Simulated scan of single mutants.
Amino acid sequence: MSLNYLVYVSQAAHDLSEAALADILRASQRYNAARDITGALLFVEGRDGRRGAFMQLLEGDDQELERLRARIFDDPRHHTKVVLDRGPLTQRNFADWSMAFRAVTPPDLAGHPEFADLADPGFMERCQQQGAPGAVAFLCEFWDAAPL
């Protein structure tokens, strides 16, 4: 198996309750554990306390990641799905997590100006046009700075 990663962002299509986020996390953990996929899922609450956005790093076999990407991108609970980066890995960043998860608010991202507006539609538009270099480093640094 070759080890690869994929990072994407998307916007929630509707308000997501804590229970809905917990359901997404449980389903992700089951699916990923069965396929040797690891990673991290960040949900950023929208500025108005509604909707929000996802950023996810997935690690595993390239074919498994592509199957999962297609499955995620077909999910109607979110829209404006953009792959930010993908490629080979020498080692996993989240080896102990079938899916690490953190829900945050926009002020929690203030120390990361390039990703501080992640929950805003303008961020998605910018990603579609320019990409978002440094997404993997951001997620790893964010998790390391505030342990789960």
Score class of each variant (00 low, 15 high):
62 D>C: 13
103 A>Q: 12
88 P>G: 01
34 A>S: 10
18 E>L: 12
35 R>V: 06
142 F>G: 10
146 A>R: 09
5 Y>L: 10
116 A>D: 06
22 A>G: 11
80 T>Y: 01
8 Y>W: 00
124 M>R: 13
57 L>Q: 10
8 Y>M: 10
38 T>S: 15
58 L>M: 11
122 G>E: 05
27 A>Q: 10
58 L>E: 03
82 V>T: 14
36 D>M: 05
79 H>I: 03
98 S>C: 10
76 P>N: 07
23 D>P: 11
94 F>G: 06
19 A>R: 13
109 L>C: 07
71 R>V: 09
145 A>F: 07
147 P>A: 11
81 K>A: 15
146 A>N: 14
104 V>G: 08
134 G>S: 05
85 D>A: 13
64 E>D: 11
138 F>R: 05
121 P>R: 05
139 L>G: 08
52 G>P: 08
147 P>V: 08
112 H>D: 15
77 R>G: 11
8 Y>Q: 02
37 I>D: 07
90 T>R: 00
45 E>I: 14
1 M>Q: 11
25 L>F: 09
43 F>I: 07
23 D>W: 04
43 F>T: 10
16 L>P: 02
53 A>T: 09
91 Q>G: 07
26 R>L: 11
13 A>S: 06
136 V>T: 12
109 L>Q: 05
104 V>R: 15
139 L>P: 04
139 L>A: 07
47 R>I: 00
74 D>S: 15
20 A>F: 04
42 L>S: 08
45 E>S: 08
96 D>T: 13
48 D>V: 15
144 D>K: 10
89 L>C: 12
